[in-house]
Design a binder for these strands. Structure first.
Lengths: 326, 326
DNA sequence: TGCCGTTACTATCACGTGTAACCTATGACT
DNA sequence: AGTCATAGGTTACACGTGATAGTAACGGCA
């Protein structure tokens, strides 16, 4: 076999079928407005199958100006199963529309994103984190058809506020509904999470304001029981319940309270698998990440069709999972 | 602005600089064997910067036959921070070599991988899970230069055995070192995890055999405390300590033992953040995922240079984190 | 018969890039 | 003065594909 050398192109298929390359292309793309007898069509299809022909994406993209990959830019903070389910479902929906979903974790410690666009020239990009002005400018330059950063981009807030401040709001409302009036909001000291942490804390603050209550005390902790215990002790008797930025922080908080000998209601966020096994089992705000993923995918597809992307994400995609910690 | 219409090509840069496109290309790629005076070089560079020129990847790939994206195929089972750190580090190493790392979670419920190769035509592919024969055949067809599935491919076992059976072996050895002679190995009932679960259980079995002990009892549990309690009760008094497939299973097991009123030593795997906050804090096997990521990246690069990829992964990348659960 | 319309194709261009081949002054050397 | 090497470029081709324009054969119809 001359295997190692050349890739199989549509020219090979044409030769094998005894037809011209144009005809092959018409058949393989079922180009509308062409009349092709069934016999010829089969001849092409079988020749292609026999040779194992696969169209070469770069050439196709170059010619048509449209690639069929969609790109999700993920932030580098730790991603749980929530995000995985979201991406999985989005991939499924986009796949039905002929798009392949790719994810890229971008740590932000370099200008990798620029390279990424030029390396992929994706048909659509969605950012799980807001893009910087510089990044947006770069995308504008290479004319990427669809951009949907969560929030911060007016008109493009695909429910970003729901994931972020919405979660905080729901946590606070739940505790307020249980009769608590002085809340704490606990965020981790990981700088990568600070933006998101602030956003959720603000959501909680809004809920408090709506209920005519004072703002929550915001405490930053390191991810160990000692640091959490310090924070708990610092609240003295003023705080009666705490929201955690996510379940891991909530677990740290529970550990801290065990160490400090205190015991306050705690509500987490994300419903990680470990939450149900905590002591006590953790009450938390869960997201229907599959639905969110589908939602994002559909919005991307609408943007690709030059339609209005702004779909409202139903509030039902986040809800409280009540266990015993609050 | 005629913004929306055309993308900026090297022709535009050439016109702006008052030179031919060839010269522009030579400068931008600093092609060796060309003599270009500094003045001209600057003229080109500044023109490119002024216009915000970015080379168009599909065209470049088409011409050169070599794309600069590397692809990690991730399995669809839940990925923790371990995998994230691995990918992040690998992306960094590959980035230094001019490659952009892309990840794709493949649920396996379709033929998406085929599409993926044709959509990306990556320079290199690494699979976090073994590939099927069909998939390998597809890759061979489109002539993807590098393939490094973990294990199962002779000569391509880039330490796969270390992550899989190696972890199980280390868990069992630790418990054996503590004087236990009858072990259980607990795997989750998630079918996506069964292959990996079996692999780790086999590692534990090997360690037992080496120590002249009977095989571990393998128990499959659903991820809730009730199911875990059942398994624990089923062991009666024969089992004196348990290895868990991962930390989440270990946490379930601890919850199950609380429910069943028993208390056996348990060792987990992966060292997720929640492990240190468990009751009791979880002893577990941690992996230095950054180092593993770097390792994989370097192996990929070697394969791209037609060198031998087989690097030994040092055993030090996995180690026991001793806490109180075992 | 002459003209038209349809069928079933083929020939050709364009996409943007990398690079081998070619071209033209300018000195240097015999 | 003639030859030649070299710096400093320019031209032309190839990569594989999608689509548009063209063309030969053929049937229908006046």
């Amino acid at each position: 076999m001359a295997d190692k050398k050349r890739r199989i192109t549509s020219v090979d298929v044409a030769r094998e079928a005894g037809l011209s390359r144009g005809t092959v292309s018409f058949v393989l793309n079922n180009t509308p407005g062409q009349s092709i007898p069934e016999a010829t069509r089969q001849r092409v299809l079988q020749a292609a199958a026999r040779l194992g022909y696969t169209p070469y994406a770069p050439a196709r993209t170059l010619r048509s100006g449209r690639s069929d990959v969609a790109l999700f830019v993920l932030p580098d903070w730790p991603q749980g199963p929530t995000m995985a389910a979201l991406v999985d479902r989005a991939a499924q929906v986009l796949g039905e529309a002929g798009l392949t979903l790719i994810t890229h974790v971008h740590a932000g410690h370099d200008d990798g994103l620029m390279k990424l666009w030029s390396a992929l020239s994706p048909a659509a990009v969605f950012g799980m984190r807001p893009f910087t002005g510089e990044e947006l400018e770069g995308m504008r330059r290479v004319r990427i058809p669809a951009v949907l950063p969560p929030s911060e981009q007016p008109g493009y807030d695909i429910g970003g506020s729901l994931w972020i401040s919405g979660v905080g709001r729901l946590q606070a409302r739940y505790l307020i509904g249980k009769g608590h009036e002085r809340l704490a909001y606990v965020v981790p000291d990981d700088p990568r999470l600070s933006a998101l942490g602030r956003g959720r804390a603000e959501g909680a603050a809004q809920a408090c304001a709506e209920a005519g209550l004072p703002e929550p005390v915001v405490s930053t902790i390191a991810m160990d029981a000692g640091s959490a215990a310090e924070a708990v002790v610092g609240w003295e008797a003023t705080v009666t319940a705490a929201c955690a930025y996510n379940d891991e922080v909530a677990l740290a908080l529970l550990a801290g309270m065990r160490a400090a000998g205190s015991s306050l209601p705690v509500i987490g966020a994300d419903d990680i698998p470990a939450a149900r096994f905590a002591v006590p089992p953790l009450t938390t705000v869960a997201q229907d990440s599959g639905e969110i993923g589908e939602h994002i995918a559909r919005a991307l597809l609408r943007v690709l069709n030059d339609e209005d992307p702004a779909l409202e994400l139903p509030a039902s995609v986040i809800h409280v999972v009540e266990r015993e910690s609050a």
